[in-house]
Amino acid sequence: MELLAFLIDFILHVDRHIAAFVAQYGAWVYALLFAIVFVETGLVVMPLLPGDSLLFVVGTLCGAGVMNLPLAITVLLVAAILGDQCNYSIGRRVGPRVFQWEQSRFFNRRAFDAAHEFYEKNGGITIVIARFMPFIRTFAPFVAGVAQMNRARFTAYNIGGALLWVVGVTLAGVMFGNIPWVQANLSKIIWAMIVIPGLIAIYGGWRAARREKQAAGA
């Protein structure tokens, strides 16, 4: 329970935690950033870690001169690309057995169904779009691996999506993160970056489950 409480607090106040980490440990913050992004994108059991809000906060700190922007973007890009490649490889290895897994503490069936539904409808571009959607972002490369998507094709979408996501959201933090209004409402912005895409992912999972039931009853 203490770990869960800390994780929730970290997600909702990622700006304070990262700033405090920089003040105490300096350059080690880049190792922390790599670990967070790699785990969030690379391990299908960890979809709750901050993604978009983390990048925005990093951009904000870079804009304030607290962190080095080129180094931060490079570290985040490498972590995002390697994370998706790892997740894809796990999905490719596990294969069709995934479709037999049930909802559990370590596997979010609804989020997986949402990612699979999104992938089936939109194909490879899902890998790019999913970068901007919490939960879906974690499951999309895993689903691509399960579906045996061509590795070269997946890698191309992976790199393109990572570039758009990391550079785009981080630079948004640089440009807007230190505006007084944004600073005053940062916690609300973080909530919006988590809740709105999360609701979209849940809706997608609900639709996928509903269609599956309708197909089974037909």
Rank of each mutant, 00 (worst) to 15 (best):
Asp84Lys: 00
Met46Ala: 15
Val128Leu: 09
Met133His: 03
Phe6Thr: 14
Asn178Ala: 04
Leu164Val: 06
Val78Leu: 11
Gln148Glu: 12
Arg93Val: 01
Asn150Arg: 11
Gly123His: 14
Met67Glu: 03
Glu120Val: 03
Met149Arg: 08
Arg93Trp: 06
Ser187Asp: 15
Ile11Asp: 02
Lys213Trp: 10
Pro141Cys: 08
Gly91Thr: 03
Val146Gln: 07
Arg131Asn: 08
Thr138Pro: 04
Arg110Cys: 11
Phe142Gly: 05
Leu43Gly: 02
Leu33Phe: 01
Gly95Ile: 06
Ala201Ser: 13
Val128Lys: 00
Ile11Val: 11
Val29Gly: 03
Ile127Glu: 12
Arg153Thr: 06
Gln103Lys: 14
Phe10Ile: 08
Val78Trp: 02
Val195Arg: 11
Glu40His: 05
Arg92Trp: 05
Glu40Pro: 03
Asn150Asp: 14
Phe99Lys: 09
Asn185Tyr: 13
Ser104Ala: 07
Asp52Tyr: 06
Ala201Cys: 12
Trp165Lys: 10
Phe56Asp: 08
Glu120Arg: 10
Phe106Lys: 00
Asp15Met: 07
Phe106Ile: 05
Thr155Arg: 01
Ile127Tyr: 07
Trp206Phe: 14
Leu71Arg: 03
Pro96Trp: 03
Phe176Met: 15
Ala72His: 03
Met1Pro: 13
Pro50Phe: 05
Arg210Gly: 12
Phe10Thr: 11
Thr60Leu: 14
Met175Asp: 06
Asp84Ala: 01
Phe38Gln: 10
Leu76Phe: 10
Glu102Thr: 07
Thr60Glu: 00
Glu120Ile: 02
Arg97Lys: 15
Val22Phe: 04
Ile179Thr: 15
Val166Tyr: 08
Tyr119Trp: 09
Ala140Gln: 06
Gly26Trp: 08
Ala144Asp: 10
Ala147Ser: 14
Ser187Leu: 07
Thr126Leu: 00
Gly204Asn: 04
Ala215Asn: 06
Trp165Cys: 07
Val167Arg: 01
Asn68Glu: 07
Ala172Pro: 15
Met193Ile: 02
Phe21Ser: 06
Arg207Met: 14
Leu54Thr: 08
Pro180Asp: 15
Arg151Lys: 13
Leu54Asn: 08
Ser104Trp: 11
Ala111Lys: 02
Val195Tyr: 09
Ala115Gln: 00
Gln103Asp: 15
Gly124Asn: 10
Leu12Glu: 14
Arg207Cys: 14
Phe154Met: 04
Gly51Tyr: 09
Ile194Met: 11
Gly59Trp: 12
Arg137Val: 04
Arg97Ile: 11
Ala115Trp: 03
Val29Pro: 03
Gly145Thr: 09
Leu69Ser: 04
Ser53Arg: 06
Ala80Asp: 08
Ile196Cys: 13
Glu2Met: 13
Phe135Gln: 05
Ala27Gly: 06
Phe112Gly: 06
Phe118Gln: 00
Thr138Gly: 04
Ser53Gly: 08
Asn122Tyr: 07
His116Asn: 13
Tyr30Thr: 07
Phe10Cys: 06
Val45Asp: 02
Ala216Ile: 13
Val166Pro: 11
Ala184Ile: 05
Thr41Asp: 12
Phe118Ser: 00
Leu69Arg: 12
Asp9Cys: 01
Phe112Asn: 01
Ala23His: 14
Asn68His: 09
Phe107Lys: 00
Leu163Val: 06
Phe56His: 10
Ala23Met: 11
Tyr88Asp: 04
Gln214Tyr: 03
Tyr119Glu: 02
